[in-house]
Design a protein around this nucleic acid. Structure first.
Length: 296
DNA sequence: TCACGTCAAGCAGAT
DNA sequence: ATCTGCTTGACGTGA
């Protein structure tokens, strides 16, 4: 079991998320920014190593405009040395990383242009992880997508398009149950047809379910991950008190976290903490699991 | 230097 | 038809 957090580290001064506006795009500037982002990523991974954090979500913004037609540098080649260095660091320290493209990535979109752009963006994520020379246990997670007034057809479209994806994307792509549209039962249904692994989002499960039991769905989720995929990935968050239902917590609620851990025993999986204070909660969670003798 | 409107991209639901 | 949340940081213009 590895514990991780997404994209940013507030304890460090650097940002791995620097970007630039499209209208200000120029080659020199974007190279500087990518350099900054990659250096910062390595700095974060080093921080993580020092705090025994072995799971991390890499920001989709690491290479700004990577899949945009304006991108005129061969970034894979240009930053080859950095990629190899970062990849080595991840492998040498037995870390796992993942990526999570944002809400514009919809392979089941009814709009052809959105579908095409989504594939390009997924390709960027896949090439990024391939450039680090990481095996396919390092995943790219997306939601199933839009509903477009017909869920069955939209699931069918997802399946058909998934089957057609290039192998470099397919080998890394995993789906996550979301808070509004595609619940865990939908994900299990899709997994049964195409075998795509399922990221189980515990917070979304609590927000969006049809009354199914956690214990009934857990075996399906765990088994959706094959040997080459690594162990399952779970996303964890809890409700921020006093905020609108569905708002992610600012800091970890250790009691709720412990309850989640107890409810999911004895399964083993890696946990991405989607909590706003990032590394602080990850450190707390790890310490807590050590106290419970779940981590050593 | 600072504040604040805006940023490549979609969808769904509310107004 | 238009706005807002998702989820949040960071850019960069204008004062």
């Amino acid at each position: 079991m590895k514990i991780g957090y997404p994209c940013i580290n507030y304890s460090l001064k650097c940002s791995p998320n620097k970007t630039l506006r499209l209208k200000n795009f120029n080659e020199k500037r974007v190279i500087e920014i990518i350099n900054n982002n990659l250096n910062c990523l390595l700095e974060i991974l080093n921080f993580n190593k020092n705090h025994e954090i072995f799971f991390f979500r890499i920001s989709s913004e690491t290479i700004p405009f990577a899949s945009h037609e304006i991108m005129n540098i061969n970034w894979r080649e240009y930053f080859k040395d950095s990629f190899l260095k970062i990849g080595e660091f991840i492998k040498n320290n037995n870390m796992r990383v993942s990526m999570h493209p944002d809400q514009f990535i919809l392979i089941n979109s009814i709009r052809e242009d959105v579908y095409i752009r989504s594939i390009k963006e997924l390709e960027y994520h896949a090439i990024f992880l391939d450039s680090l020379e990481l095996d396919e246990s390092h995943k790219i997670q997306i939601h199933v997508g839009g509903v477009y007034n017909n869920k069955n057809e939209s699931i069918e479209r997802f399946i058909i398009r998934y089957e057609k994806l290039p192998q470099l994307i397919k080998k890394r792509l995993v789906i996550e149950n979301d808070d509004k549209f595609y619940n865990i039962l939908d994900c299990i249904l899709i997994n049964k047809k195409i075998g795509i692994p399922i990221v189980f989002d515990y917070f979304h499960f609590n927000l969006n379910n049809l009354g199914e039991n956690l214990n009934d769905v857990l075996p399906y989720i765990i088994n959706s991950w094959n040997r080459k995929d690594g162990i399952a990935i779970f996303d964890y968050s809890s409700q921020e008190n006093g905020k609108k239902f569905g708002t992610h917590a600012n800091k970890i609620d250790l009691k709720d976290f412990e309850n989640f851990i107890k409810l999911t025993r004895p399964y083993d999986f890696d946990i991405m903490l989607e909590i706003k204070d990032k590394e602080k909660s990850a450190i707390k969670a790890i310490n807590h699991l050590k106290k419970l003798n779940i981590l050593n």
